[in-house]
Nucleic acid binder design. Structure first.
Length: 279
DNA sequence: AACGCCGCCTGATCGC
DNA sequence: TGCGATCAGGCGGCGT
């Protein structure tokens, strides 16, 4: 699932490709991904607009455009299965294409198998986000954790606490910090909160540096037609190969060899080492 | 007001 | 074998 590193790598990939491009056509195949923006308003406001920039905020993409002299922002989210990429104008559209922005020689394609993502002119959801992981002091982070009795793993998924951490990197950061995912957030001490914040930043940065966990725009089967972003040249160099706990239930811990555990918290899988993460 | 729970979706996997 | 049931999961909305 795309989290902060995947979205950051995607933003870096798309930014130079989109800059200066003008939207000449807007095809809406799945209107629900625009919500709450009305499809007619979406088309009217985007047609003729030119891309002037692309930012990332948490797991969101902020497409900056100008229409005549009026600036506007388009908000993108990949949900679970979303992909956004440029493809030649004449390429057939994938089965689960949600929106196509026609840019001339190329199309900007947003496809999403489960349609959990968004491409909308409503910015409200991005405005609720907590700070980026690198814009937090350890004291602020500790203060936020203190107010919660939820398990710390569950709390890390709360985007209003901190933006960008999802299910994969929450487990990975807790392993690195040697903190049990079951510990109540409010009982994490000041020094442990500092350690956790450092671990979160390190895990996210390493994933960005290795080109994110997964290729984000592969078409069709996983083994076919891969188009990689970032520095890695092959799938084995992606961050997936560096994950210590995520999706490794039953496999030996890379540190102590004990089998990695899988538990369910708030209806989501958590992976951790019961030996290394006792507090 | 923090928190639990549901609905949204499809494809992979499971069970009989 | 084949097919229906179950599950996964980010996030908004809603109820407590």
């Amino acid at each position: 699932m795309p989290e902060l590193p995947e979205v950051e790598v995607l933003a870096r990939h798309l930014r130079p490709l989109l800059l200066g491009q003008t939207i000449r056509g807007v095809d809406i195949r799945r209107p629900q991904v625009l919500l709450p923006t009305d499809p007619a308003a979406f088309q009217r406001r985007l047609l003729g607009a030119t891309f002037t920039g692309l930012q990332r905020r948490g797991k969101y993409l902020l497409f900056e455009l100008r229409h005549a002299r009026t600036p506007l922002t388009l908000l993108g989210h990949l949900g679970m299965t979303g992909r956004m990429y440029l493809a030649p104008r004449r390429d057939p559209l994938p089965k689960h294409t949600a929106v196509v922005l026609r840019l001339g020689a190329r199309n900007f394609i947003y496809e999403d198998t489960r349609y959990f993502g968004r491409l909308t002119l409503d910015l409200a959801s991005a405005e609720k986000l907590g700070p980026e992981p690198d814009q937090f002091t350890p004291a602020q982070f500790h203060a936020k954790l203190k107010t919660s009795r939820q398990a710390v793993k569950v709390k890390l998924l709360d985007q209003t606490l901190m933006a960008g951490v999802g299910n994969i990197y929450a487990s990975e950061a807790l392993f690195r910090a040697k903190i049990s995912p079951r510990r109540a957030a409010g009982t994490v001490s000041g020094p442990r909160a500092r350690t956790l914040l450092t671990a979160i930043r390190a895990v996210l940065q390493e994933a960005i540096d290795s080109g994110s966990t997964i290729p984000l725009n592969f078409a069709g089967k996983k083994t076919d037609g891969l188009f990689y972003f970032g520095r890695a040249a092959t799938a084995s160099e992606y961050y997936t190969e560096r994950l210590n706990v995520y999706d490794r239930a039953g496999k030996p811990c890379n540190h102590c060899q004990f089998p990695i555990k899988r538990i369910v918290q708030a209806a989501r899988s958590t992976f951790f080492c019961g030996q290394c993460q006792k507090d």
